[in-house]
Amino acid sequence: MARRFLGPWLVLVWFAGSTAWAQADAASAGKVEQAVSQALEKARAAATALTQALMGELMKHMREGGPEAAVSVCSAKAQEITKAQQQEGVLVRRVTARPRNPQNRPDDYEQAMLVLMEHRYRKDKTASEVSDWYLEGETLTVRYLRPIVIGEMCLACHGDRQRMKPAVREFLTQHYPEDQAVGYQAGDFRGAVSVTVKTTLPPEPQKP
Protein backbone atom coordinates (compact mmCIF):
# COMPACT_ATOMS: atom_id res chain seq x y z
CA MET A 1 0.00 0.00 0.00
CA ALA A 2 2.81 2.35 0.88
CA ARG A 3 4.51 1.95 -2.49
CA ARG A 4 1.29 2.47 -4.43
CA PHE A 5 0.72 5.71 -2.48
CA LEU A 6 4.33 6.93 -2.56
CA GLY A 7 4.78 6.63 -6.35
CA PRO A 8 1.98 9.08 -7.34
CA TRP A 9 2.99 11.42 -4.50
CA LEU A 10 6.58 11.66 -5.84
CA VAL A 11 5.24 12.29 -9.35
CA LEU A 12 3.01 15.03 -7.97
CA VAL A 13 5.92 16.70 -6.14
CA TRP A 14 8.13 16.52 -9.26
CA PHE A 15 5.36 17.98 -11.42
CA ALA A 16 4.68 20.79 -8.98
CA GLY A 17 8.39 21.62 -8.75
CA SER A 18 8.84 21.58 -12.52
CA THR A 19 5.83 23.85 -12.96
CA ALA A 20 7.17 26.30 -10.38
CA TRP A 21 10.58 26.40 -12.07
CA ALA A 22 8.94 26.94 -15.48
CA GLN A 23 6.89 29.78 -14.05
CA ALA A 24 10.00 31.33 -12.51
CA ASP A 25 11.87 31.07 -15.83
CA ALA A 26 8.90 32.62 -17.65
CA ALA A 27 8.80 35.44 -15.10
CA SER A 28 12.53 36.01 -15.59
CA ALA A 29 12.12 36.12 -19.37
CA GLY A 30 9.20 38.51 -19.00
CA LYS A 31 11.29 40.74 -16.74
CA VAL A 32 14.07 40.95 -19.35
CA GLU A 33 11.57 41.59 -22.15
CA GLN A 34 10.01 44.45 -20.20
CA ALA A 35 13.42 45.93 -19.37
CA VAL A 36 14.46 45.80 -23.05
CA SER A 37 11.21 47.50 -24.09
CA GLN A 38 11.70 50.27 -21.52
CA ALA A 39 15.35 50.76 -22.54
CA LEU A 40 14.36 51.02 -26.21
CA GLU A 41 11.78 53.67 -25.34
CA LYS A 42 14.48 55.61 -23.53
CA ALA A 43 16.87 55.21 -26.49
CA ARG A 44 14.29 56.44 -28.98
CA ALA A 45 13.47 59.42 -26.77
CA ALA A 46 17.16 60.32 -26.49
CA ALA A 47 17.64 60.08 -30.26
CA THR A 48 14.62 62.32 -30.83
CA ALA A 49 15.78 64.88 -28.26
CA LEU A 50 19.25 65.13 -29.80
CA THR A 51 17.91 65.42 -33.35
CA GLN A 52 15.43 68.13 -32.42
CA ALA A 53 18.02 70.10 -30.44
CA LEU A 54 20.58 70.01 -33.26
CA MET A 55 18.08 70.79 -36.01
CA GLY A 56 16.57 73.64 -34.01
CA GLU A 57 19.97 75.26 -33.51
CA LEU A 58 21.00 74.64 -37.12
CA MET A 59 17.84 76.10 -38.65
CA LYS A 60 18.02 79.13 -36.35
CA HIS A 61 21.54 80.01 -37.50
CA MET A 62 20.71 79.14 -41.12
CA ARG A 63 17.91 81.75 -41.06
CA GLU A 64 20.03 84.33 -39.29
CA GLY A 65 23.35 83.95 -41.08
CA GLY A 66 23.05 81.40 -43.88
CA PRO A 67 25.36 78.42 -44.48
CA GLU A 68 28.38 80.26 -43.08
CA ALA A 69 26.68 80.53 -39.68
CA ALA A 70 25.26 77.01 -39.88
CA VAL A 71 28.62 75.36 -40.46
CA SER A 72 30.04 77.14 -37.42
CA VAL A 73 27.21 75.62 -35.35
CA CYS A 74 28.24 72.13 -36.43
CA SER A 75 31.82 72.96 -35.52
CA ALA A 76 31.39 74.80 -32.23
CA LYS A 77 28.08 73.66 -30.76
CA ALA A 78 27.19 70.21 -32.07
CA GLN A 79 29.35 68.35 -29.57
CA GLU A 80 28.18 70.61 -26.73
CA ILE A 81 24.54 69.96 -27.63
CA THR A 82 25.25 66.24 -27.84
CA LYS A 83 26.89 66.17 -24.40
CA ALA A 84 23.96 68.12 -22.96
CA GLN A 85 21.64 65.26 -23.98
CA GLN A 86 23.52 62.65 -21.95
CA GLN A 87 21.69 61.10 -18.99
CA GLU A 88 22.67 58.59 -16.33
CA GLY A 89 22.93 55.24 -18.09
CA VAL A 90 22.29 56.81 -21.52
CA LEU A 91 25.02 57.64 -24.06
CA VAL A 92 23.87 59.35 -27.27
CA ARG A 93 25.93 60.57 -30.20
CA ARG A 94 26.05 60.80 -33.99
CA VAL A 95 28.21 58.38 -35.99
CA THR A 96 29.17 58.04 -39.64
CA ALA A 97 31.61 56.11 -41.80
CA ARG A 98 32.58 59.43 -43.42
CA PRO A 99 33.19 61.75 -40.45
CA ARG A 100 33.92 65.43 -40.45
CA ASN A 101 34.67 65.51 -36.74
CA PRO A 102 36.85 62.57 -35.60
CA GLN A 103 34.66 62.28 -32.48
CA ASN A 104 31.89 60.93 -34.71
CA ARG A 105 33.83 57.87 -35.82
CA PRO A 106 31.87 54.65 -35.13
CA ASP A 107 33.02 51.82 -32.90
CA ASP A 108 33.11 48.29 -34.30
CA TYR A 109 29.45 47.57 -33.56
CA GLU A 110 28.28 50.90 -34.97
CA GLN A 111 30.41 50.41 -38.09
CA ALA A 112 28.81 47.01 -38.75
CA MET A 113 25.32 48.43 -38.24
CA LEU A 114 26.04 51.42 -40.51
CA VAL A 115 27.04 49.02 -43.29
CA LEU A 116 23.83 47.04 -42.78
CA MET A 117 21.64 50.16 -42.63
CA GLU A 118 23.17 51.70 -45.74
CA HIS A 119 22.78 48.42 -47.64
CA ARG A 120 19.09 48.30 -46.73
CA TYR A 121 18.62 51.96 -47.61
CA ARG A 122 20.25 51.65 -51.01
CA LYS A 123 18.15 48.57 -51.73
CA ASP A 124 14.69 49.99 -51.00
CA LYS A 125 15.20 53.55 -49.63
CA THR A 126 13.86 52.42 -46.26
CA ALA A 127 15.53 54.30 -43.43
CA SER A 128 14.85 51.83 -40.63
CA GLU A 129 16.26 51.76 -37.10
CA VAL A 130 18.27 48.84 -35.74
CA SER A 131 18.75 47.62 -32.17
CA ASP A 132 20.37 44.82 -30.17
CA TRP A 133 20.69 43.94 -26.50
CA TYR A 134 22.80 41.72 -24.28
CA LEU A 135 23.12 40.80 -20.63
CA GLU A 136 26.24 40.80 -18.46
CA GLY A 137 25.14 39.43 -15.12
CA GLU A 138 22.26 41.69 -14.08
CA THR A 139 23.32 44.58 -16.35
CA LEU A 140 21.27 45.01 -19.52
CA THR A 141 22.82 46.92 -22.42
CA VAL A 142 20.69 48.06 -25.36
CA ARG A 143 22.32 49.42 -28.54
CA TYR A 144 20.11 51.50 -30.82
CA LEU A 145 20.78 53.33 -34.09
CA ARG A 146 18.43 55.67 -35.97
CA PRO A 147 19.44 56.55 -39.56
CA ILE A 148 20.36 60.05 -40.72
CA VAL A 149 19.55 60.95 -44.33
CA ILE A 150 20.89 64.02 -46.15
CA GLY A 151 18.30 66.74 -46.73
CA GLU A 152 18.45 69.67 -49.14
CA MET A 153 19.53 72.06 -46.38
CA CYS A 154 22.48 69.78 -45.52
CA LEU A 155 24.03 70.24 -48.98
CA ALA A 156 25.22 73.74 -48.10
CA CYS A 157 27.90 72.09 -45.93
CA HIS A 158 27.90 68.45 -47.07
CA GLY A 159 27.32 68.69 -50.85
CA ASP A 160 29.74 69.26 -53.74
CA ARG A 161 32.68 71.30 -52.40
CA GLN A 162 32.92 73.29 -55.63
CA ARG A 163 29.33 74.46 -55.26
CA MET A 164 29.69 75.56 -51.65
CA LYS A 165 29.98 79.22 -50.78
CA PRO A 166 33.64 80.23 -50.62
CA ALA A 167 33.37 81.13 -46.92
CA VAL A 168 31.98 77.65 -46.12
CA ARG A 169 34.65 75.90 -48.17
CA GLU A 170 37.38 77.96 -46.53
CA PHE A 171 35.99 77.24 -43.05
CA LEU A 172 35.95 73.48 -43.70
CA THR A 173 39.47 73.52 -45.12
CA GLN A 174 40.77 75.41 -42.12
CA HIS A 175 38.96 73.47 -39.36
CA TYR A 176 38.63 70.01 -40.94
CA PRO A 177 41.57 69.35 -43.27
CA GLU A 178 40.70 65.61 -43.33
CA ASP A 179 36.98 66.18 -43.84
CA GLN A 180 35.21 63.18 -45.44
CA ALA A 181 31.65 64.48 -45.08
CA VAL A 182 31.27 66.11 -48.49
CA GLY A 183 30.07 65.04 -51.92
CA TYR A 184 26.60 63.99 -50.77
CA GLN A 185 23.34 64.42 -52.65
CA ALA A 186 19.90 64.94 -51.15
CA GLY A 187 18.48 61.60 -50.02
CA ASP A 188 21.87 59.95 -49.44
CA PHE A 189 22.44 57.86 -46.33
CA ARG A 190 24.64 59.90 -43.97
CA GLY A 191 25.01 57.93 -40.74
CA ALA A 192 23.03 57.43 -37.55
CA VAL A 193 22.15 58.69 -34.12
CA SER A 194 23.61 56.03 -31.85
CA VAL A 195 22.27 55.44 -28.34
CA THR A 196 23.55 53.05 -25.68
CA VAL A 197 21.34 52.41 -22.66
CA LYS A 198 22.60 50.51 -19.61
CA THR A 199 20.27 49.46 -16.81
CA THR A 200 20.23 46.98 -13.93
CA LEU A 201 17.54 44.31 -13.95
CA PRO A 202 15.21 44.09 -10.94
CA PRO A 203 15.84 41.16 -8.55
CA GLU A 204 15.02 37.66 -9.79
CA PRO A 205 11.81 36.08 -8.49
CA GLN A 206 12.44 33.58 -5.68
CA LYS A 207 12.58 29.96 -6.86
CA PRO A 208 11.28 27.18 -4.62
Rank of each mutant, 00 (worst) to 15 (best):
Y184L: 00
A78P: 07
W133Q: 10
M113A: 14
Y121P: 02
D108Q: 08
R63K: 09
R190K: 11
V11G: 08
K77N: 10
T199R: 05
R143D: 07
Q180Y: 00
M117Y: 03
A47I: 02
K77E: 13
K123N: 09
K31C: 07
Q206N: 10
L6N: 00
E33Q: 10
M164V: 01
A69F: 06
P202S: 13
E33C: 04
L58T: 01
E57V: 06
D124R: 07
M153R: 07
T141C: 08
G7H: 14
E57Q: 14
D124W: 07
M55T: 07
L140V: 01
A35H: 00
G137M: 09
E64M: 15
L54Q: 09
T51V: 01
A127R: 01
T199N: 07
I150L: 13
I148E: 11
A43Y: 01
R161I: 07
Q34G: 01
V13Y: 01
A69V: 06
K77G: 00
I150K: 08
A39K: 00
P106K: 06
P8I: 11
G30M: 05
G159M: 03
L40R: 12
K83N: 14
L58P: 00
G183M: 12
L58M: 15
R190P: 00
T19G: 05
G30Q: 03
T199E: 11
L10S: 02
C154R: 03
Q87E: 11
M113F: 03
A70H: 01
P147R: 06
M117V: 05
K207Q: 11
A70Y: 01
M164R: 00
R120Q: 15
Q23G: 08
V182I: 13
V193R: 00
T173F: 05
K60R: 13
V195Y: 04
A26L: 06
R163T: 04
R100W: 10
A76N: 15
K83L: 10
S128G: 09
M117K: 08
T200D: 13
T173Q: 14
E57C: 01
A20R: 01
S18H: 00
Q85M: 09
Q111Y: 13
A27D: 05
F5R: 04
R161C: 05
E178R: 15
V149R: 07
Q174Y: 02
E41R: 14
D107W: 06
Q111T: 05
C154Q: 06
V115Q: 14
R98T: 04
E68N: 09
E129H: 02
K42V: 02
L58R: 02
A186K: 15
A35R: 00
T199K: 05
P8G: 10
Q162S: 15
T139R: 14
